[in-house]
Simulated assay, not measured.
Amino acid sequence: MIPFLDLKAQYASIKEEVDAAALRVLASTQYVLGEEVAAFEKEFATYCQARHAIAVNTGTSALHLALLAADIGPGDEVITVPFTFVASVSAICYTGARPVFVDIEPTTFTMDPAKLEAAITSRTKAIMPVHLYGQMADMTPIMEIAARHGIPVIEDACQAHGAEYHGKRAGSIGVSGCFSFYPGKNLGACGEGGLAVTNDDATAAKIRMLRDWGQEQRYHHTLKGFNYRMDGIQGAILRVKLRHLEKWTEARRTNARLYTTLLKNVEAVAAPTEAADRRHVYHIYAVRSDDREALRQSLDAAGIATGLHYPIPVHLQKAHADLGHRKGDFPVSEQVASEVLSVPLYPELTSEQIATVVDAIAEATTAKPARAALRVG
């Protein structure tokens, strides 16, 4: 069996460091926020090339507070994409604003800048591109359009820890950027966690208050806030994992390159595309197949776990039927959603396991086995 993700292998490789960090927090009794969270904020801000980082309990909370810090509220519109995890849209809805969709590019699966300007109205108060699967959206034209209209850009970087666009790190380009530390992410907590980064002092101060009941100081509630604080143990563990993140990222990129090389011999399946001006960190390695379900079943029978990210675009989800969209409104998102299949990719995955996955894909699609192209050692 080849698992989709192997968190046990990751934990085993850093067990002593993680255990010591958790015990350090238990001994300190700083269970909520505290020194470990504050230190992680500084370290992650530096990693993202940003001035400020504010740690919260989930990536969804980070998006919610970043939107509120941009003064988004009822009657406003926020532009994003329909091909994303539902939390991107839910965070917009939490503010009372209305999500407005633009379709994605067929190669990168990120916001299509050519379709952005037509979606802007007098009610548009923010643009939220999603850096999907570990690759950043095409930020230069997005930022240029936003600047022409005086609209802030909030980056949904929940899947893009360490991703780059023209040398700039995810989260550092817009007014703020938001990350998730759900366990399966490239930088994952041992539980839930999230964070917002920003270079704007006022935005940082507002998010910091909003996460902790709107307090400017204890029991002085300046804003109507939330209980979105990060646990001390998560902050300590994330500090440990952050020290390993670049090594893990390069291992992911190496494994992705091997997948892409081997899949060149499998005509029935398309490998993902890494844009020339970007650093893809491969949170997900999603191939495309015209017969995705048959391929999924075949890999499952071969003992290879897969994932679907995401089979139904948000505009077609029952929970968001109130937005009034129909099938055909965003054809690129709909086609991609029907074709993508995520295959195992993580730092501990071996080259032999990758070859096994590709051979199984080749067999399922009656294509030529790819193992002969593999050179180990």
Results as ranks from 00 to 15, higher is better:
L5P: 06
D6A: 09
L7F: 10
Q10I: 14
Y11H: 12
E16D: 14
L23Q: 14
A27W: 08
L33E: 15
V37F: 02
V37R: 02
F40Y: 15
C48E: 00
A50F: 06
H52A: 04
I54G: 05
G59L: 07
G59K: 06
H64F: 11
L65N: 03
L67A: 04
P74N: 08
G75T: 06
G75W: 06
I79K: 01
V81T: 15
V81I: 15
T84L: 11
V89N: 03
I92P: 02
I92Q: 01
C93Q: 12
Y94I: 07
Y94T: 10
G96D: 05
A97G: 05
P99D: 04
P99L: 03
F101G: 02
D103M: 06
P106G: 07
P106K: 08
T108Y: 02
F109V: 08
M111N: 07
D112V: 08
K115D: 07
T124S: 13
A126M: 11
A126P: 12
L132P: 09
G134D: 04
T140G: 10
T140Y: 12
T140H: 13
A146S: 11
H149Q: 09
E155L: 09
D156Y: 01
Q159I: 02
E164W: 06
K168M: 11
S172Q: 04
S172L: 06
I173D: 02
S176H: 05
Y182N: 14
P183S: 06
L187N: 01
G193K: 01
L195N: 03
V197H: 05
T203G: 00
A204C: 07
A204R: 01
A205G: 08
D212M: 13
W213L: 15
G214H: 10
D231G: 13
D231Q: 15
I233A: 11
I233C: 08
A236F: 07
L238R: 02
L238W: 03
R243K: 15
L245R: 00
W248Y: 13
T249L: 00
T249H: 03
E250M: 00
A251P: 03
T254Y: 07
Y259C: 02
T261Q: 14
L262E: 02
L263Q: 00
V266Q: 00
V266S: 03
E267G: 15
A268Y: 03
E274Y: 04
V281Y: 05
H283Q: 13
I284Q: 13
V287I: 15
D290G: 14
E293A: 13
L295H: 07
L295G: 06
Q297K: 15
G303A: 09
T306R: 09
T306P: 10
T306N: 10
G307I: 12
G307Q: 14
L308K: 12
P311A: 10
I312L: 14
Q317H: 09
A321Q: 09
G324C: 02
H325L: 03
H325S: 04
R326K: 13
K327Q: 14
D329N: 07
F330E: 03
S333E: 03
S333P: 03
E334N: 03
Q335M: 14
E339D: 08
L341C: 09
V343Q: 00
Y346K: 01
Y346R: 05
E348G: 09
L349S: 04
L349R: 00
E352D: 13
E352W: 11
A355W: 00
V358N: 02
A362V: 06
K368N: 10
A373K: 14
G377P: 09
